[in-house]
């Protein structure tokens, strides 16, 4: 699982049928100090994350399993909204 910040959403009407009524969000991957790493990616949303929310997401097969109908081609799904990131102490 990795940290990211929601920076936008992606509207897409013509898409795979199993992606119907699944929100697609634009996520900027972050490191543990919430600094940007890598380029923004598109992820499926399962927790109604909003713009500027810090989230954690999962890739690979687990991304597809995160959605209700797990037979879908998602390879990146947001699994939760982060309230607090604590480093050290």
């Amino acid at each position: 699982m990795y940290l990211g910040r929601v920076i936008g959403n992606v509207v897409c009407t013509q898409k795979v049928e199993s992606f119907n009524n699944i929100k697609l969000l634009l996520v900027q991957p972050l490191d543990e100090k919430l600094k940007k790493i890598g380029d923004p990616v598109v992820a499926c949303d399962t927790v109604q994350a909003g713009i500027n929310d810090i989230v954690f997401y999962e890739g690979g097969r687990e991304a597809a399993l995160g959605l209700k109908n797990w037979f879908n081609p998602s390879d990146l799904t947001i699994m939760g909204i982060v309230d607090q990131v604590n480093i050290g102490e």
Partner: peptide, 23 residues
Amino acid sequence: VIGNVVSTMKLSIYEGYKILIVQ
């Protein structure tokens, strides 16, 4: 383990587990 992440709004499967940041 270098830290942890607090999250209340998450998939139900994650409830009951601490989420730790690992290097």
